[in-house]
Amino acid sequence: MPAEPSPASRPRAIGIATAIMCALAGGALWCLLSLYSRGDLAGLAFLVALPVTWTLRRHGYAGRWSGALVAAACVALAAFYSFYLQAVARIAGMLGLPMRETLLRMEPGMAIDIARANTGTTSIAIVVAAIVFAGAFVKRRA
């Protein structure tokens, strides 16, 4: 029979799950706003980083390298998810298909290539700065 997780580890696991969900929700909202404004809005990576870092700090990751790595990974996940969804939405719009059908039919490699082609150097630099910010903010002592 597997051992029960200790009470101290449960809140941390919930913190990671919550941070991932914040990143995915932030990425989806980022995509929606980007499509509405017809730009990639890379600066929203900093806004996505705020709830992720707050969640991790509240669940005991403040001042830890592990928390900094999780925060950086979550912001990177949000950026990837947003750019991926933006690529799928562009293809769906061009083909006149529903986004859900396009998402299911489209090869991931094609969506990644389209996202890469539509993302400029400045946007990548802004996202990298947000990733570093998230890691540094969680690593900072309380």
Rank of each mutant, 00 (worst) to 15 (best):
P5Y: 05
S6G: 15
P11Y: 07
R12E: 12
A13N: 15
A13S: 14
I16K: 02
A17E: 10
T18Y: 03
A19Q: 04
I20Y: 01
C22P: 05
G26N: 01
L32F: 05
S34A: 15
S34E: 10
S37T: 12
L41R: 10
V48A: 04
L50D: 07
T53Y: 04
W54I: 12
W54N: 12
T55W: 02
R57L: 05
R58M: 11
H59V: 07
G60S: 06
G60Q: 07
A62T: 14
G63V: 14
W65I: 12
S66N: 15
S66F: 13
A68R: 01
L69V: 09
A72Q: 06
C74S: 09
V75F: 03
A76R: 02
A76S: 09
L77F: 04
Y81W: 12
Y81F: 15
S82M: 02
F83L: 08
A87W: 01
R90D: 15
I91R: 11
G93T: 11
L95V: 14
G96T: 10
L97T: 14
P98F: 09
E101V: 13
M106V: 11
M106E: 12
M106I: 14
M110G: 10
A111G: 08
I112Q: 04
I112F: 05
N118R: 08
N118S: 15
T119G: 07
G120S: 14
T121S: 15
T122V: 14
T122D: 13
S123T: 11
A125M: 13
A125E: 10
A129G: 07
I131N: 05
V132H: 04
F133W: 09
A134W: 00
G135P: 09
R140M: 13
R141L: 11
